[in-house]
């Protein structure tokens, strides 16, 4: 049992928390705009990469974080303008799939520029050195990842339910024409959702970089794992994103330890297929209501 906890559950939940955060980022944008941003994984890697570049340029670490956040917001707004806004609640999934994938490729190429695509060690995040906690070896980075997942998801739920802007984003998600007819701006809502998603990506990026080398190509990997978590949890559901991420983390870790490292992707995507067969709208997704 202890071995299962140490080799599967602890690392699985920590990885799953990262996948969950990526999925929460997807859900944050999808809820309002109906667009899944396939460049989100690159946004995740943009944060630590920007910090590294800023520190390399001589900025103190705190200022590097501020500069990196500014870069995240500027890039997010650019992505929103070019690849998201034209397709807000349009139902043109082929269009936004291609537009966000195109942005993903562009960002991946740009992320490879500063260090010629080589990996870099990130020492400005949370410690990955393990310590003993109730007989289990865990690291502050792993604990922070799990805590961050629930804190970020909780804050977003409160934001959507309790704030005026959150209510407006839900209104846009429900009915774009109805929302515009009462004065809610589609462009502003899309911008807010994209920046929120980018801030989630910033948190995710720091946590990713705290546990592994910063590699530009990691973005694509996190995009696909996050997408699977989103799909399993249910599109647009924050709670579903949390659950989907944790499930993916534990299942992939179990497959890696007990079946073989080459079966991890196979297992994760097979799980997606099974969930889609049993519950086509994901574990927490709601089937569309049909008027009768």
């Amino acid at each position: 049992m202890d071995e299962f906890l140490q080799t599967v559950l602890v690392p699985g939940l920590a990885d799953g928390a990262i996948y969950g955060l990526v999925a929460v980022g997807f859900a944050t944008l999808f809820t309002t705009t109906g667009v899944i941003n396939f460049a989100h994984g690159q946004m995740v890697m943009l944060m630590p990469m920007s910090v590294l570049v800023a520190v390399g340029a001589g900025l103190p670490v705190w200022l590097a974080y501020v500069a990196a956040l500014a870069v995240m917001v500027v890039v997010a707004l650019t992505v929103e303008w070019t690849a998201v806004r034209p397709f807000v609640q349009s139902g043109q999934s082929a269009s936004w799939l291609l537009s966000t994938l195109a942005v993903s490729v562009v960002l991946a190429e740009l992320l490879a520029v500063p260090y010629s695509g080589e990996s870099r060690n990130f020492t400005y995040g949370v410690s990955k050195h393990r310590f003993d906690l109730a007989g289990l070896a865990v690291s502050p980075a792993e604990l922070t990842a799990v805590a961050a997942l629930f804190v970020v998801a909780g804050l977003l739920v409160v934001f959507y339910r309790r704030t005026r802007i959150g209510l407006e984003l839900r209104a846009i998600a429900d009915d774009l024409d109805g929302a515009e007819a009462i004065g809610i701006s589609r462009a502003r809502a899309s911008q807010i959702a994209t920046v929120l998603s980018a801030l989630v990506a910033a948190v995710t990026g720091v946590l990713v970089a705290s546990t592994q080398l910063v590699t530009p190509s990691l973005g694509l990997s996190y995009t696909f794992y996050g997408f699977v978590a989103t799909a399993i949890g249910g599109m647009g559901s924050i709670g579903g994103a949390v659950a989907g991420g944790l499930v993916i983390g534990v299942v992939s870790q179990f497959a890696g330890v007990h079946v073989g490292s080459l079966t991890v992707n196979l297992t994760v995507f097979l799980l997606l297929v099974v969930v889609y067969v049993v519950r086509p709208h994901g574990l927490f997704g709601a089937a569309p209501v049909r008027a009768v």
Binding site: L167, R170, D175, G178, V289
Partner: peptide, 10 residues
């Protein structure tokens, strides 16, 4: 609007 367009989840 035609068709009401209320926010159904609110």
């Amino acid at each position: 609007l035609e068709g009401r367009h209320v926010f159904k989840s609110l």
